[in-house]
Design a protein around this nucleic acid. Structure first.
Length: 561
RNA sequence: CGGGGCGUGGCGCAGCCUGGUAGCGCGCACCGUUCGGGUCGGUGAGGCCCCCGGUUCGAAUCCGGGCGCCCCGACCA
C-alpha cells in the first residue's frame, strides 16, 4: 500500500528560495505540502496523513467529553453575518450567487451554528450541548506567511458549547480545557495554555494554547506558575535606582533632549525614574494622557481593555494647545484626563515640563497631579509574578484558542430557550478552535534537526520507514518484501522504500521525512543476520535479529508511541 | 495599508547595467558504470524569458502599465 516507488512523495534537495521558517522549508522539502498561491496550500499524501492523525487525536478527545461531530457549509448567505455585525470584517470573503444574492465564505461558524440552535433549541431540557466539526475556514489575510502557519484557507476544528447559564458555560469550558490539555499532550508538542485577550469575539474570558518556537507570531510571558499572552500579561515591575524626592517639581533645562534615553543619560538617572507621557485619542474621541515608566511601553491591548475602548496615538494637531511639544510632554499642570500605569510609584520622578527644552524633576504622582491608575504597560523579561518568580518571554505559535462567548451571538441571532419557570433566556455559548495545520507546523518547528523532520510517534505520517538497500533480484529484496508484508499485516503503518535508488538518497530521504523508526534491510545487516533499526530523533540504534523480525520492530514502535 | 525584494525549462540560479534571437547546476529520459550516506561517464528531452503596450531593423535586456510571489512593519475571528 505504501511502496515509495508508487507514492507521491516529491522530496527536494533544496528548500524553496522564498522560505524562511523551518517548518516551511522542511514540510516542502519532505514532500508533504505544496503551495498553490499566496496563503493557499495543497497537502500532499504524506502531509495529509499527519494532518489526519492530528484530527484523529482531536476527535477522540472531544468525543470523550461528549461532544458531537457535525458539518456545516463554508458557503453561506450573508444575512446571518449582517445580523451579528461581522459582515464588515475585511478578512471576510464576500461574493454573490448567480441570482445576485450576497454570500460569504465562512471564516468561522458561530453565525451558522447559532442560527441552527436558535431554531432547534426550545427548552432548558435541550441544554447543554457541545458540537464540533472539521471544516475549511476562509480568511482574506492581509499577509499570509511562513508556509502553512498563516494561510487564507485552512481546516479548523471548531467546537461550540451551548448552556443555560454562565455556570453551565464554566462547566463546558472546563471540559474543553481538559480535552485540549490531553490533545496537546498527545501531539507531543511543547505547549502552554495562556490567558489571552478576548479580542473582537467579545465574551468574558479566553485562553490560547501556544506552542513555543522561533517562527511564532505571538509572544508569551512564562513563569513556573504563570503563563499569559504578552498582550494581556501582568506582573510586578523590577526596581530601579530611585533619585531623591524633592519638596516639589523643579525645572531642569534639557535642550533638544526628547527621548527617554537622552534625558536619562543627561541627568544621570535610571530610565525607570522617568515618566513617559503618551497622548492618545480613544474611538469615542476622548483625549487621554497615558503615563508609563520610562523603561516601559504602553500595551495597546491592555489599554483598550482598561479603558473599555480602543485608542490611537494622538496627532500633533490634537496635542497642540493642550500639552507641550512632543518630547517635553508631562502630566504636571496638564488639564487633560490622565491615566497612570500602576508600575509608576513614589516621588523623585522626571517628566516633561510641557514647554520646549525643559523637564521637571522631583515629580510625585498624587501630590503634583491627579490621575486614574490602571495596568496598561507591556510586561518585560525579568518582571516578577506574585509568587516572586521571574518572567521569561518566548515567541510562540497559537495552535488553539477557547472563548467564553456568553450571549454575544445568541442574542443577535435570537437563540433562546425557556427556563423551568417558562421565561425566555438567551443561550450561553463558548467557542473552541484548533488549527491542525498549525500543530503540524509547530511540531516541525519544535522537533526538527539538521537532517530533517522528527515526528512524534502519534502524528508521524508512518510509524516505520522501511529502507531496502538491495537491488532488484538480490536476496535482500525478498527479505525486505517479506518484512514489509508481515508488518503491514500486523497493522503497522509502513512506508517501504523499494525504489531503485542509491543508499545515500534513500537514507537522507528517510531522515528528511522523519518517521519514528527507520528499518534498514541490506546486505551488510543480513550478513550479521540482523535488521538495523534506528530511532529518529534519539539516535538510538537497535540490531534486530532477522528471525525476530516484525515482532521486535512492532515492540519498538510500541515503545516509541 | 507603508517599506523592501523577486518573477528566465520541474527546483535553485546566471544573463539585463552596455539590445543581436538563452545558459549553468540539480532533477528528468535512455545507455553504460557504481551500489551502506544524495556514484561516475555519455547521449538526450524540456523554456509563451509573468502579462499587455511602447521604443527599435532587432527586446529576457530599454520605457510605461498591469499581475503574481516573498520578506519587514501595521493588521490578525
Amino acid at each position: 500500500m505504501a511502496r515509495l516507488s508508487r507514492t507521491l512523495l516529491p522530496t527536494l534537495k533544496d528548500p524553496p528560495a522564498d522560505a524562511e521558517a523551518v517548518s516551511h522549508k522542511l514540510l516542502v522539502r519532505a514532500g508533504m505540502v505544496r503551495q498553490m498561491g499566496s496563503g493557499l496550500w495543497t497537502w500532499l499524501p504524506a502531509g495529509w496523513r499527519t494532518h489526519r492523525k492530528v484530527e484523529a487525536i482531536i476527535r477522540e478527545e472531544l468525543d470523550r467529553i461528549g461532544a458531537q461531530e457535525l458539518s456545516m457549509p463554508v458557503l453561506q448567505p450573508a444575512e446571518l453575518w449582517q445580523a451579528t455585525g461581522r459582515y464588515d470584517i475585511d478578512e471576510l470573503f464576500k461574493l454573490e450567487d448567480r441570482k445576485g444574492s450576497p454570500m460569504v465564505l465562512a471564516m468561522t461558524h458561530e453565525e451558522c451554528v447559532t442560527g441552527h440552535m436558535a431554531r432547534e433549541v426550545r427548552s432548558y431540557r435541550d441544554l447543554p450541548r457541545i458540537v464540533y466539526q472539521f471544516q475549511v475556514k476562509e480568511r482574506d489575510e492581509p499577509r499570509p506567511r511562513a508556509g502553512v502557519l498563516r494561510t487564507r484557507e485552512f481546516v479548523m476544528k471548531d467546537a461550540y458549547s451551548f448552556d443555560r447559564d454562565s455556570e453551565g458555560l464554566e462547566h463546558s469550558y472546563g471540559l474543553c480545557v481538559e480535552a485540549y490539555d490531553r490533545i496537546f499532550d498527545r501531539t507531543g508538542l511543547r505547549w502552554y495554555r495562556v490567558e489571552s485577550d478576548v479580542g473582537m469575539m467579545g465574551g468574558s474570558g479566553a485562553h490560547e494554547y501556544m506552542a513555543p518556537c522561533a517562527a511564532g507570531e505571538d509572544t508569551i510571558a512564562i513563569a513556573p506558575d504563570y503563563a499569559a499572552n504578552l498582550e494581556v500579561a501582568s506582573a510586578l515591575p523590577q526596581g530601579f535606582e530611585r533619585p531623591p524626592a524633592l519638596e516639589g517639581p523643579e525645572a531642569v533645562d534639557t535642550p533638544g533632549l526628547k527621548t527617554v534615553e537622552e534625558v536619562s543619560a543627561a541627568l544621570g538617572l535610571d530610565p525607570g525614574a522617568l515618566i513617559k507621557s503618551v497622548p492618545v485619542v480613544t474611538d469615542s474621541g476622548d483625549f487621554i494622557l497615558v503615563l508609563v515608566r520610562g523603561d516601559h511601553q504602553v500595551n495597546q491591548v491592555k489599554l483598550a481593555n482598561a479603558l473599555g475602548e480602543a485608542s490611537r496615538p494622538a496627532r500633533e494637531d490634537e496635542i497642540a494647545g493642550k500639552l507641550g511639544p512632543p518630547g517635553f510632554i508631562g502630566p504636571v499642570g496638564a488639564e487633560v484626563r490622565i491615566v497612570k500605569d500602576e508600575a509608576i510609584s513614589g516621588g523623585g520622578l522626571v517628566t516633561g515640563a510641557n514647554r520646549p527644552d525643559a523637564h521637571l524633576r522631583g515629580v510625585e504622582p498624587g501630590r503634583d497631579f491627579e490621575y486614574e491608575q490602571m495596568d496598561v504597560r507591556t510586561v518585560v523579561r525579568g518582571d516578577l509574578t506574585e509568587s516572586g518568580d521571574e518572567i521569561t518571554l518566548e515567541p510562540a505559535i497559537e495552535v488553539a484558542n477557547i472563548f467564553k462567548l456568553g450571549t454575544r451571538y445568541s442574542e443577535p441571532l435570537g437563540a433562546t430557550y425557556l427556563d423551568p419557570d417558562g421565561r425566555e433566556q438567551p443561550i450561553v455559548m463558548g467557542s473552541y478552535g484548533i488549527g491542525p495545520a498549525r500543530i503540524v507546523a509547530a511540531a516541525a518547528e519544535q522537533l526538527s534537526d539538521e537532517h530533517g523532520l522528527v515526528w512524534p510517534a502519534d502524528i508521524a505520517p508512518w510509524q516505520v520507514h522501511l529502507v531496502s538497500l538491495a537491488k532488484a533480484g538480490e536476496e535482500a529484496t525478498e527479505v525486505a518484501d517479506r518484512l514489509y508484508g508481515e508488518l503491514t499485516d500486523a497493522g503497522m503503518e509502513v512506508l517501504y522504500d523499494d525504489r531503485d535508488a542509491g543508499p545515500g538518497q534513500k537514507l537522507t530521504d528517510a531522515e528528511l521525512l522523519g518517521c519514528p523508526l527507520r528499518v534498514v534491510v541490506g546486505r551488510r545487516g543480513l550478513a550479521e543476520g540482523i535488521f538495523e533499526v534506528s530511532e529518529r530523533g534519539t539516535g538510538v540504534d537497535h540490531k534486530v535479529p532477522v528471525e525476530q523480525g516484525s515482532d521486535a520492530i512492532i515492540a519498538l514502535a510500541g515503545d516509541r508511541a
